[in-house]
Amino acid sequence: MTNLNCRDCRDFAPIDVVKGVCHITKTTVLGDAEQCGDFSMMPKCKHCSQFTADAETVEMGVCQASTMEPKFFAFPDMVSVTCEYYEQN
């Protein structure tokens, strides 16, 4: 769980692409700020066992749960709270 920050936290409600509200502290925090002691991981593709990272482009990958061939792409930073295929690594 290295390199995770507030944007990867379940209790971070994104206001915009820079910042969000922390549901724990009720303060506005930067999304790129370091995680704190109350960190709770947000389901994202990058934490999912169905996700295979792309060898060349780090921001891309493949969703192995995709039912089509070739498998549909996925990207690591996508939130997976609502994804029925999500299985945490």
Binding site: V17, E59, M60, F75, P76, D77, M78
Partner: peptide, 8 residues
């Protein structure tokens, strides 16, 4: 948009 999402 976040830079990480641009390839997508």
């Amino acid at each position: 948009m976040r830079q990480e999402e641009i390839p997508a």
